[in-house]
Simulated scan of single mutants.
Amino acid sequence: MSVASSVISIVQEELAKHSATRLLLVRVRFGALANLVPEAMEFAFEAMTVGTDFEGAKLELAMAPVKLLCGGCGKEFEPQGKELLFAPCPACGEEAGHHVLAGRELYVEHIEAE
């Protein structure tokens, strides 16, 4: 609920800046490591917009992949499958010591309004 509330606050601020009143669509980009449950976010957004000017607005969620930097050889790579935390480097096979370059982000990427 707190993430949905924050998204709504951000959208309200942006709409006020541009003298828009009706929200049509908001796209939120989140990393695979951001601990966001899409179904819960959709439910919270819908529940919090019922009876408001944002009722009926579409929420799009776009997941950003995890990108790691190998701690051994320095190669950037995207782990595949569900094993995001145990991801051997495809170049050298190093299994630990990687740095997360992307995959933790959570931000409003796009807003459409009238």
Rank of each mutant, 00 (worst) to 15 (best):
P90T: 08
A96T: 15
G51I: 06
A4M: 03
V7P: 01
A20Q: 14
A91V: 13
N35G: 10
A102D: 04
E14G: 01
E39D: 15
S19K: 13
H110W: 06
V26K: 06
A47M: 13
E42P: 02
H110M: 06
E42N: 11
R27I: 06
E83K: 14
A16Y: 01
G74E: 07
G51L: 08
P79V: 10
L69K: 15
V28T: 06
G97F: 09
L24Y: 04
P65V: 08
F86Q: 12
C92I: 08
A44T: 03
F45H: 02
E94L: 11
E14Y: 04
E42G: 05
A47L: 14
S2I: 01
D53G: 14
Y107E: 07
C89G: 10
Q80E: 15
E105R: 02
F86A: 14
E76Q: 15
F54R: 02
S19N: 13
G97A: 12
K67H: 08
L33S: 08
F54Q: 02
G103C: 05
F43G: 00
D53S: 14
A32W: 00
E78M: 13
L24C: 08
E112T: 07
V66P: 03
C92K: 08
R29S: 14
L85T: 11
G81Y: 05
E14A: 13
M63I: 04
V11D: 05
G93K: 08
F54H: 11
I10F: 03
L15A: 09
I8Q: 01
R29W: 00
G51K: 05
L68Q: 10
P79R: 09
E39V: 04
E55W: 01
R29A: 13
K75E: 15
G81T: 09
V108K: 02
A57F: 03
A20C: 12
A113N: 03
E55I: 01
E114R: 09
L106V: 10
L69G: 10
K75F: 04
Q12L: 12
E105F: 03
P38W: 02
E14Q: 15
G97P: 08
P38L: 05
E95N: 05
G74D: 08
A96S: 15
S5G: 10
M1T: 12
M41S: 02
L106N: 00
F45G: 03
E55P: 03
V26S: 10
E112R: 12
M1P: 07
H99P: 00
L25K: 15
L23M: 12
F86V: 14
S6W: 00
I8Y: 00
I111C: 08
S2C: 00
F30A: 13
L15R: 09
F86W: 07
L59Y: 05
S2E: 06
E109P: 03
K75N: 12
M48P: 01
